[in-house]
Amino acid sequence: MKLRYFAWLRQRTGLAEEEVEPPPEVHCVADLKHWLADRHPRFGEVLAAPGVVRCAVDQEYAEDDTPLEGAREVAFFPPVTGG
């Protein structure tokens, strides 16, 4: 699956995107965050704070319990500030 990071979260991972194969125990967004916290410690640091890290699965907003079965692209980003 492809992971994408935006705004200051990208600065935390040092990557705009990466291709990963999470282990089989990663079923939902919360599992993926937990797995990524080890991979990117500076990204992991901010995951616990409520409302700081938002997520989209296949370009739709997602929650911690959103399943990842069949997901091709998962993005992490701070709350949006357009307009």
Binding site: F6, A7, A56, F77, P78, V80, T81, G82, G83
Partner: peptide, 13 residues
């Protein structure tokens, strides 16, 4: 404009 500000994925630097 209200919905765009909170629902479209843009970030300002």
């Amino acid at each position: 404009i209200d919905w765009l500000k909170t629902k479209a994925p843009f970030w300002k630097l």
